[in-house]
């Protein structure tokens, strides 16, 4: 069931990205993308490969730097352009502080292979937040239970299946208590029979009103879990709308062609 947007939270803007431009060399990847994400919203970004959807997501938490545009996370400016000028970033320390409002889950998991599942989860709370082991371990164990991996507490990531790895990655991101979760094609590296367990975890988070921005190829997830769907192509947003309306009656020809190919 799609979780309904709550009116009380509607006004609270979590991410505001305006007019984002980004080039790799001479290739323009983002051509003025704008997005506003409010608290509790689950937004899916879909589109063909090369449409710039992953790059856009990576710009929001400074894994890529933008050339032009303004990014504001929960009211705090990450980067801002004056008029047509180059985007100016805030200080390194500020960037890190703002970045901690967001957790991220990658296509390739990026778990730390030399640490056990539990160590992966407690690492950042220990060394970034300076929490005590006895504080964080019970919390980490609760998160592991939540993603259904309590039995894998002391296993190393390389001994897990792709779906298990991704659920550990989600638990690791949650351990930092972010306000927003970004997902960059979280199921694209998984065997089809393993995507379900990851999507189930994500759906549970959506049901708990986690604010989520999900770049995905899973049309089922976009349709059933997301409140809003954004279709990107050629470095720009072509069309967006509430997920049911979006899939029932796409307006743009490119959207129709894309959905026709995907479904």
């Amino acid at each position: 069931m799609p979780n309904t947007m709550r009116d009380t939270a509607k006004s609270e803007v979590m991410i505001s990205a305006q007019g984002i431009h980004k080039s790799f060399g001479h290739v323009s990847v983002l051509r003025g993308v704008s997005l506003t994400l409010t608290r509790g919203e689950v937004v899916a970004i879909i589109g063909p490969s090369g449409s710039g959807k992953s790059t856009f997501l990576r710009c929001l938490n400074h894994l890529e730097t933008i050339d032009r545009g303004t990014i504001v996370i929960e009211g705090e400016v990450l980067a801002r352009s004056e008029g047509e000028g180059k985007a100016q970033y805030v200080s390194e320390a500020e960037i890190r502080k703002i970045g901690r409002k967001m957790g991220m889950v990658f296509q390739s998991f990026n778990l730390f292979p030399h640490m056990t599942v539990l160590e992966n989860i407690i690492e950042a709370p220990l060394i970034v937040k300076g929490m005590k082991r006895e504080e964080i371990i019970p919390k980490a164990e609760k998160l592991l239970a939540k993603v259904g991996l309590s039995a894998k507490r002391d296993a190393y990531p390389n001994h897990l299946s792709g779906g298990q790895k991704q659920r550990v990655a989600i638990a690791r991101a949650l351990a930092m208590e972010p306000d927003i979760l970004l997902f960059d094609e979280p199921t694209s590296a998984l065997d089809p029979e393993l995507t379900g367990e990851v999507l189930r975890t994500m759906r549970e988070l959506a049901d708990e009103h986690m604010t989520m921005l999900v770049v995905t190829h899973e049309m089922g997830f976009a349709r059933e879990v997301a409140n809003r769907v954004i279709f990107m192509d050629g470095g720009d947003i072509v069309e967006q709308g509430p997920s049911e309306a979006f899939f029932a009656a796409p307006q743009h020809e490119r959207t129709k062609a894309f959905l026709h190919n995907m479904l």
């Binding site: 938490n61 400074h62 894994l63 890190r96 970045g99 901690r100 967001m102 957790g103 991220m104 990658f106 390739s108 998991f109 990026n110 778990l111 730390f112 292979p113 030399h114 690492e123 950042a124 060394i127 970034v128 937040k129 690791r172 991101a173 930092m176």
Partner: peptide, 26 residues
């Protein structure tokens, strides 16, 4: 892998922390 640096960065680690805790042990 670059993903290790990115994984550390999105968890809020500094360059020094990433080196000491993630990159050098591997």
């Amino acid at each position: 892998d670059r993903g290790q640096y990115e994984g550390a960065k999105v968890l809020g680690m500094t360059y020094a922390q990433t080196m000491r805790r993630i990159v050098l042990p591997q």
